[in-house]
């Protein structure tokens, strides 16, 4: 079904595909449908598409109500608004009751480069993963997005998916089996392991390539389910390495890195957290400038790995 490397287009197209057979799927939108790509669903199933206006709090609680009648509501907005603007509605109406509501945080991380700090989400993973019952998903490419959306429909419970605004190269195998909660090794290596999520998976893979030429062997693991974190698999992937690195396009406070740090606290392995330091985003004319500014390029990952191995 996937027609491009766009994660958000794939998200919309996959739901159109699933919506044909599963008439319980409903979509709610807060006037960003052409960005989140929820509009694709609305074009095909207008009776199951609820335009809620620019009112994210109401949208989240209405979704809770729809799920109480057995529907599978997907609510859509930019990640900052989907997670932050409606935070208490997600907490009180949705997660306390453990309702089957799916939240799409689109244009996540720094990927909405032009719009600046109000529209760039460096805190959505932290906000969502602290909520009991919530599952937090972070696909690294369009292939994984498609698999993930299918699994979201099949699996009950509140879930948050953060989706990059920009097209990303496909790095996962379309024929691989996907399960929510599973982390996947995408590069084999033995000196250091990088646990990466979202766009940082491909950045880490490139870093591994660079370092291989220098004789440093890097294992890269795609952690696309940030919560629940498969601690057993995490510890397994740490076996034999000299150091651990995490990489995410999110604040290093409360994101993948701090969760991994907690899980590895007894291993005594050297650990470095790559992510956005405790600061907000900023506008730029392209994505690359921002990734460079916040130290999230493959060269940055490579130099942090070199550094931790020389400690």
């Amino acid at each position: 079904m996937r027609t491009s490397d766009s994660l958000r287009k794939t998200y919309g197209e996959t739901l159109v595909e699933l919506g044909e057979k599963n008439t319980d799927i409903v979509m709610l939108e807060a006037d960003l449908g052409n960005s989140t790509m929820s509009s694709l669903f609305g074009n095909v199933y207008p009776e199951r598409y609820f335009q809620m206006g620019i009112a994210e709090q109401n949208m989240a609680s209405v979704a809770a109500g729809l799920s109480l009648t057995g529907k599978i509501p997907f609510i859509n907005s930019f990640a900052v608004f989907a997670s932050g603007r409606a935070y208490d509605q997600i907490r009180s109406s949705i997660t306390i009751a453990n309702l089957n509501v799916k939240i799409c945080g689109s244009s996540a991380g720094l990927s909405d480069f032009g719009d600046g700090k109000t529209h760039q989400s460096i805190d959505d993973i932290a906000l969502m993963q602290v909520l009991p019952h919530m599952t937090v998903l972070s696909p690294c490419d369009a292939v994984e997005t498609e698999q993930m959306v299918k699994a979201m429909v099949e699996t009950k419970g509140p879930m948050y998916i953060r989706i990059n605004r920009n097209d990303l190269p496909v790095v996962t195998d379309p024929n691989s089996e996907y399960h929510i909660g599973k982390m996947t090794r995408v590069v084999e290596g033995s000196d250091v392991v990088v646990f990466a999520t979202g766009i940082m998976v491909q950045q880490s893979m490139q870093a591994a390539k660079l370092l291989l030429e220098e004789g440093i062997s890097v294992r890269v693991v795609n952690v696309s389910t940030i919560k629940p974190l498969d601690t057993e698999a995490l510890l397994g992937f740490c076996e034999g390495v000299k150091a651990v690195v995490t990489a995410e396009e999110h604040s290093i406070i409360g994101g993948l890195g701090s969760t991994v740090a907690g899980a590895l606290s007894k291993t005594r392995l050297p650990l470095d957290l790559i992510g956005v330091d405790d600061r907000y985003g900023t506008s730029a004319e392209n994505y690359t400038i921002l990734l460079k500014h916040y130290g999230l390029e493959s060269e940055d990952v490579a130099s942090r790995i070199r550094a931790i191995l020389t400690v």
Partner: peptide
């Protein structure tokens, strides 16, 4: 989850009308 006959989780004020609307829209579908 605790009490038979209770339809939703409420208590954080201002949310129950939205939840009710969601239920109403679901029933209509």
């Amino acid at each position: 989850d605790k009490t038979p006959g209770i339809e939703a989780v409420t208590g954080s004020l201002g949310q129950g009308l939205s939840v009710s609307l969601g239920v109403a829209l679901g029933l209509r579908l």
